[in-house]
């Protein structure tokens, strides 16, 4: 019976982040947290496999102390137990730091047969966690998976790449990153949300992982962040359809497009 660990990131919902027009800085004061989109697919995939063929699903997240807010959501998605590492270092962590922290935590709470995560996070989309983690743990890694079948210790996957679909097999333990089209994540119902309150969660103190201060220093550090501005003409016609269409056609002709 496979033992799964799903890695997820608690991110800000980018839909609620605004670009300030004066200095192009980002205003995230109204942004709420969410489980990073593709990680929801990873959670769903592990949960669905375990519901069908038995096994267990645990989840692990490293984030700022706000990561604790994610526990109810993650536990209502078919996860048996959630581990969390909440530390201020996550604010500046790059993929190198994240992989080191996750690898150290997995050495502590593992082993697992299959470690799943989304192909990238919806904020940074570094797409590095799965292969980096696999390299640090000395495990094989299959990335960009859009079909996953688990039979005992063996996983058979279809990977969707830009120019081909690739079928591959691996014997666990292995690290697997999934694409968003692998499944449709469940929307937890009231019963699942209430059930989540009874499920266990455990904080892992960063200090207990035996990492050096240097391990928490990002190798790629953000120097500046600026909102992307697109300057467009913004000529909007609000007339009755026939008039608006006539004006638009004339504008498109003026641009040499028709």
């Amino acid at each position: 019976m496979p033992k799964f660990l799903v890695l997820y990131k608690w991110t800000l919902d980018e839909q609620d982040i605004k670009v300030k027009s004066d200095d192009l800085s980002l205003d995230a004061s109204r942004a709420k947290g969410k489980i990073s989109d593709f990680d929801r697919n990873a959670i769903e995939e592990a949960a669905a496999i375990v519901e069908k063929q038995g096994g267990s699903v645990e989840a692990l997240s490293y984030g700022t102390p706000t990561v604790k807010q994610s526990l109810k959501d993650v536990l209502s998605r078919g996860v048996d137990k959630a581990y969390w590492i909440g530390d201020a270092s996550a604010e500046t962590a790059d993929a190198a730091v994240t992989a080191k922290v996750l690898a150290a935590a997995i050495r502590k709470i593992g082993p697992y047969d299959f470690i799943l995560t989304g192909e990238g996070s919806s904020d940074q989309f570094n797409q590095q966690t799965a292969p980096r983690l696999a390299a640090l743990l000395g495990l094989p890694c299959l990335s960009f998976v859009h079909k996953l079948e688990v039979d005992g210790a063996k996983a058979s996957v279809a990977r969707k790449l830009a120019d081909c679909t690739e079928l591959a097999t691996v014997t666990g333990p292995a690290v697997i990153s999934v694409l968003s089209d692998i499944n449709k994540p469940r929307i937890p119902g009231l019963k699942q949300v209430l059930g989540a309150a009874k499920k266990p969660s455990e904080e892992i103190a960063l200090g207990s992982l035996g990492l050096a201060a240097e391990d928490l220093q990002p190798k790629a550090s953000r120097r500046s962040v600026k909102g992307f501005v697109m300057t467009r003409k913004n000529v909007i016609y609000k007339d009755a359809p026939a008039d608006a269409v006539a004006k638009l056609v004339s504008s498109l002709a003026g641009e040499g497009l028709i």
């Binding site: 980018e14 190798k219 500046s224």
Partner: peptide, 12 residues
Amino acid sequence: LYAGLAVCEEEQ
């Protein structure tokens, strides 16, 4: 970053 909402510079 943020699916295109922002642009950032990283140094290594």
